[in-house]
Amino acid sequence: MSALVTDDQIAAPDDLYQALVDAHEGLADAESRQMNARLILLLANHVGDLAVLQEAAAMVRASVLRDRPDA
């Protein structure tokens, strides 16, 4: 049974994308990496469900591996 919601739930996709871009505005690369990492942790706590996080991580990992040149 899937716990992770992958249906489209976003009312204003352009606004959401812009919010992520804005969050990195003016940050150096190292700061941006921290921006991403802290955002993941804060949202993971908001979700509060290990199974959801594991499912999401597995899905993204598969997607990353699929993009390997030799895949």
Partner: peptide, 24 residues
């Protein structure tokens, strides 16, 4: 790895303000 270090450092940074991160 650098990515894992980023996550670790993010936990430490968030720990200053957030209980959930302190527990990690």
């Amino acid at each position: 790895s650098q990515a894992v270090r980023d996550i670790r450092d993010a936990v430490l940074a968030l720990a200053r303000d957030h209980g959930f991160a302190r527990r990690m």
